[in-house]
Write a protein that binds this DNA or RNA. Structure first.
Lengths: 256, 256
DNA sequence: ATTTTCAACTTGTATAGACAATACGCGAAT
DNA sequence: ATTCGCGTATTGTCTATACAAGTTGAAAAT
């Protein structure tokens, strides 16, 4: 055999054995922990090949399915990548994906123990303009709903919500009482959200918006454009505008 | 037995069998697909209990480990939740987690086929103020590095980067040439990022910042405060300021 | 009526073995 | 020299079984 390669493999296995925590956690979990530790500590570097499942089975004295589960789960979370017939490798991250939890604004305010109130400015049925049809993935002239709401936190305006809705997916939209149930919650009930996209920008408002939000015209605002899908169809497209000093997004990643 | 309950369970199993795709994908994958389809189509509703593993094994004629894998993976992605001794339930999403990919700004600009340039305004070693020490999780007066950079895209200023760095984790920070390798990339090499947090806000700039970014003082800016950890220790805390009309965040969720 | 015990059911983990699918290098055939 | 085929190594999936651990409800004991 190739002795230098054998030595390298053996040192990897030794590093693995050394990093195995002594807890009473399940074997597959301890193995995952040992592998991520070795990567985080720089002992195993990006694109380096890990010992094969068979070698780990031999070294650890456990079943192959257990080793396989640990490696499979680390692959699912992007720590490793594997190729059938070739081997398992340390993944080299090109980007860090940060998770931002997007809540219903009413829920978020309630969680802070504050009172939530809604003012309905517009709620009407209209025919889709070319631009609106494009945003909803339908044809120009089809029926849509259009709504404009202002959300208040403790009687202070915190978000201007401008929304168009695909009428074929939520035909009773205009009959709802949005002072009781927010559009987000209602739509998620009649057409469960399966996908979505967000575009976050910093903008300044026009006079109308500044007036509605009771802010100075030069105050920076966080604008979120959100589109949501339900089974491949676009349900709604919303523009959420919030004063920068009252609203922010918090995201995190890691903690494996 | 309770006949009404038995009928319900049977109807769930029938819905499952009906939703099984006819592809040649692995069994566990087809089972996952059938379950998510039933949930997305509203046939199975939030908090509803699924048939037990044993019942699925019986109905599908497959091994329990295969059923278990499908249910376990759907639990990991938040579609289901399970409790040992009780059962498996459709998870009711309280929030949608949107993924925002956070790239190195230089990489992002390069991906767009544009030229990236950096101007170094400040790069010095200082003693941490109380506030700075708090942000880095160290003691006041310990050595830190402080840097201020301006990133240009096609010679237009696009981001002001203000950063403090834990000197004990990156002792050679001030010796680097950041016109070649960005602080983000350098720090990720000497102290691999294991965790991070982001705070996204819309702000207006002061005269100094507006001048550096070559924008009007009333132009809205997107401000990202980012802190990153390497093995439980805070490596760096950065404030990234970008003109709202030039920079945005894009996030998505779904596509299972 | 209350408490205790226990059996049944559920999910969680682990094993040993089997076969399939993919990749790769080496030797044989051309 | 080039191509082809084949064996080997590797990961991917699936099965059957076993035992552990948590929950629940009903029977039994008090």
């Amino acid at each position: 055999m190739n002795s230098s390669l054998a030595v390298t493999t053996q040192s990897l296995l030794n590093a693995l054995l050394g990093a195995l925590p002594n807890t009473n956690a399940p074997i597959y979990a301890r193995l995952k922990s040992a592998i991520t530790d070795n990567i985080n500590n720089g002992i195993w570097v990006a694109e380096q090949r890990l010992p094969s499942e068979a070698e780990m089975v031999q070294a650890l004295g456990v079943s192959r399915m257990t080793v396989n589960r640990a490696l499979r789960e680390l692959t699912a979370t992007g720590v490793l990548h594997r190729q059938q017939g070739v081997g398992t490798f340390v993944a080299s991250k090109k980007a860090h994906s940060a998770l931002f939890e997007v809540h219903d604004i009413a829920q978020e305010i309630a969680d802070r123990g504050h009172t939530h109130k809604v003012e309905i400015v517009i709620l009407q049925e209209v025919k889709a303009s070319t631009d609106q049809a494009l945003r909803l993935g339908i044809r120009t002239g089809e029926t849509i709903f259009k709504s404009e709401l202002i959300h208040f936190e403790n009687n202070q305006p915190i978000q201007l919500e401008e929304r168009i809705v695909n009428a074929s997916l939520a035909p009773d939209y205009s009959k709802q009482d949005f002072t009781q149930l927010t559009p987000y919650a209602y739509l998620n009930r009649v057409a469960p959200i399966t996908e979505g996209e967000h575009l976050v920008e910093a903008v300044t408002t026009n006079t109308y918006e500044a007036n509605k939000l009771a802010i100075d015209k030069h105050q920076a605002c966080l604008q979120i454009r959100r589109r949501t899908w339900s089974n491949q169809q676009i349900v709604t497209s919303a523009r959420l505008l919030s004063p920068g000093h009252l609203f922010h997004l918090f995201g995190h990643f890691g903690r494996p």
